[in-house]
């Protein structure tokens, strides 16, 4: 008896060890590929990264070319995208989760939002071209680009908001209702603050996705060569991914170096956004814990 008992235990332990090794390898593979890519890009791009690169307009001469219009365009785009998608997404998420009736229509909407989150971005580009650029006659403007990206990330924000609201324990709602709080008071003072870190994470992930998109922007006709900065929402624009794509497709090696430097800037902005999200979440989670 004792022998077989020992044998079984050691086999389970073996499985345990195998799993932890496989898991570690999987993790290392993901992180490793990213690090190799980053190192490769950094080796090419770092030497090109300087102040004049950040403050120059694109040029035919790769040594004069900079990404000023691209990164300013990206900042404009993100501002427009965020201004449209964040309030709409949060409000839609709150409505669907807290106020909407659970019926067939709600189920239909739910399935569709989940599907929308998985639709290839170039399809959103087509939609943006048809709806914003042509039908609403916004032209190839920052507003059209931002609105297109907002559509793209709206489902992600809605889903994240709903998940975050659902993760708040029922007991918190009950406590608030039992004291005579209205639904809105319960939401405003208890549920939303508790769900805020989750919603915030969803927003930043969505924005991080939007910042790297080039296909929908090319689809609506964003230009690569722009020698001025957008002054208002109706101005044409370019963005970092488009500039990078443009440079990569040039035959001269010097432009590939510029592209690498551009990628570093894009990565830096994305990492900063993620860092901000982590910091904010940490701050709020310290306050809200059960």
């Amino acid at each position: 008896m004792k022998k077989s008992f020992l044998k079984k235990l050691s086999r389970n332990e073996m499985n345990d060890r195998i799993f932890s090794v496989v898991g570690l390898l999987a993790t290392l593979l993901g992180v490793g590929v990213f690090l190799v890519l980053l190192a490769d890009v950094a080796m090419d791009g770092l030497k090109r990264l300087n102040w004049s690169f950040l403050t120059s307009f694109p040029s035919r001469n790769p040594f004069d070319a900079g990404i000023l219009s691209a990164w300013v365009g990206t900042v404009w785009l993100m501002a427009v995208t965020g201004a449209i998608a964040i309030p709409l997404g949060i409000m839609a998420g709150i409505y669907l989760e807290e106020y909407g009736k659970r019926n067939k229509l709600a189920g239909f909407i739910e399935v569709n939002i989940a599907n929308l989150a998985g639709i290839p971005s170039i399809i959103y580009g087509l939609l943006g071209l048809g709806l914003f650029v042509r039908f609403l006659d916004l032209g190839r403007s920052v507003l059209a680009g931002g609105a297109t990206l907002a559509l793209l990330i709206l489902p992600i924000i809605i889903l994240a908001t709903r998940e975050a609201l659902r993760a708040v324990p029922v007991s918190l709602r009950e406590a608030s209702f039992a004291l005579g709080a209205t639904k809105w008071q319960t939401l405003k003072y208890q549920i939303l603050p508790a769900a805020f870190p989750g919603i915030l994470t969803g927003i930043i992930l969505a924005m991080s996705r939007a910042i790297g998109e080039s296909a929908p922007l090319i689809m609506i006709g964003a230009l690569a060569y722009i020698a001025f900065l957008p002054q208002q929402l109706s101005d044409p624009f370019t963005a970092l991914p488009i500039q990078i794509f443009n440079w990569v497709s040039r035959p001269q090696h010097e432009f590939a170096v510029n592209a690498a430097a551009g990628i570093l800037v894009l990565l830096f902005i994305t990492l900063m956004m993620n860092g901000l999200a982590i910091w904010l979440r940490y701050r709020f989670e310290k306050k809200v814990r059960w």
Partner: peptide, 12 residues
């Protein structure tokens, strides 16, 4: 008509 629940549920 107030209520006290099974699991203590103070607000955070």
């Amino acid at each position: 008509i107030g209520m006290v629940f099974q699991k203590p549920n103070p607000f955070p």
